Amino acid sequence: MATINYDRLQGKLNILADAAKYDVSCSSSAGTRKNQGGGLGDASATGICHSYTEDGRCVSLLKILLTNHCIYDCAYCTSRKSNDTPRAAFSVEEVVDLTMQFYRRNYIEGLFLSSGIFKSGDYTMERLVEVAKILRTRERFNGYIHLKTIPGASKELLLEAGLYADRLSVNIEIPTKSGLALLAPEKSHDELKAPMETVKEEIITIRESRKTHKKAPKFTPAGQTSQMIVGASNETDLQVIQLSSHFYKQYDLKR
């Protein structure tokens, strides 16, 4: 393993934890209380958020992006390629090290990992999967892992991701096709829905398999989630509600 420069890592963490705050597919606190040198604890925005497991437990998650570099220029995204913002990228080993260091210090109980898309969907998704795989197999990490699936990533990578992550998610982003075409013309609803369909089908397949084969592998046991931006285009409240209802029924979303 490469030696990690912790001063540089802190700089990356500041950028990539801040960039991850816009993804609300896990609940997050909004505390800003800082420790000024006395007492215990710190509630400033350091990239730790809170989510809830299937049995109702509240868990603290390290919430970061792998990178905020992105090949897309979606008008609503702070990581869009035309935005003048500081850029950073973690290596796979840096994310693994951060997760284990935070976990050993009892700061977190899991990881929420998303990413801008750099080079391609497969290139990015491969690195997200590698983080989860190393945590599970080499580090024997049994905490909660939530991975974002990347539009355009191969079915094979999505299926591998579900073997290591507790939950997967992909953002539908804008409720209407016309709104998405206006604000993110490089993307399409069909491309965004494809990972959801893959995950849903595999969840059903594994669920049926486990009825007869108890040792069948688990696949994203906490299910999948999504989120959309409301108000950026001209969709009506009714359209938002109808789409939400459709996605809950069609893809068995948890949130």
Score class of each variant (00 low, 15 high):
Ala153Glu: 00
Ser60Cys: 12
Lys218Pro: 02
Ser120Pro: 05
Glu109Met: 03
Glu139Met: 11
Tyr103Trp: 15
Leu61Asn: 07
Tyr103Glu: 13
Ala161Trp: 02
Ser244Ile: 00
Leu163Ile: 04
Glu54Met: 03
Leu98Ile: 07
Ala184Met: 10
Phe102Gly: 06
Asp55Cys: 10
Phe141Trp: 10
Asp73Thr: 08
Ile4Arg: 08
Gly223Pro: 05
Phe247Trp: 12
Ala89Asn: 04
Gly223Met: 06
Arg255Trp: 12
Asp190Pro: 04
Ala161Asp: 02
Asp237Gly: 11
Gly47Trp: 05
Gly152Thr: 06
Ala2Asp: 14
Val129Lys: 01
Val240Phe: 05
Leu65Asp: 00
Leu158Arg: 00
Asp18Pro: 08
Ala43Pro: 00
Lys249Ala: 09
Arg105Glu: 12
Tyr72Cys: 13
Met100Trp: 07
Leu113Cys: 02
Gly223Lys: 08
Phe90Asn: 03
Arg33Trp: 13
Leu158Ser: 00
Thr220Ser: 15
Lys214Gln: 14
Gly110Thr: 02
Tyr123Thr: 04
Ser44Tyr: 11
Ile108Phe: 04
Tyr248His: 07
Arg33Asp: 12
Ser29Gly: 13
Glu139Lys: 11
Arg33Ser: 14
Gly231Tyr: 11
Ile15Arg: 04
Ala17Asn: 10
Arg207Ala: 14
Glu54Pro: 00
Tyr103Leu: 12
Leu128Ala: 01
Gln242Ala: 11
Gly11Ile: 09
Leu66Lys: 06
Gly11Cys: 09
Asp18Met: 12
Arg167Pro: 05
Leu61Gln: 06
Thr220Pro: 04
Ala165Gln: 04
Ser226Arg: 00
Glu191Gln: 13
Cys77Arg: 01
Val170Phe: 01
Arg136Trp: 02
Arg127Trp: 09
Glu186Ala: 13
Arg140His: 14
Gly179Gln: 08
Thr46His: 12
Gly38Lys: 15
Asn68Glu: 00
Glu235Arg: 02
Glu173Trp: 00
Gly152Asp: 04
Ser29Met: 09
Lys177Thr: 12
Phe118Ala: 10
Glu93Tyr: 08
Arg140Asn: 14
Tyr6Ser: 06
Arg167Lys: 15
Gly11Arg: 10
Asn171Lys: 01
Ala165Leu: 04
Lys12Glu: 00
Ile108Ser: 04
Asn5Ser: 03
Ser51Asn: 10
Thr149Cys: 13
Tyr123Met: 00
Thr176Trp: 06
Lys214Ala: 15
Leu157Gly: 01
Thr85Pro: 05
Cys58Lys: 15
Ile241Met: 12
Gln101Met: 14
Thr67Met: 07
Ser51Met: 04
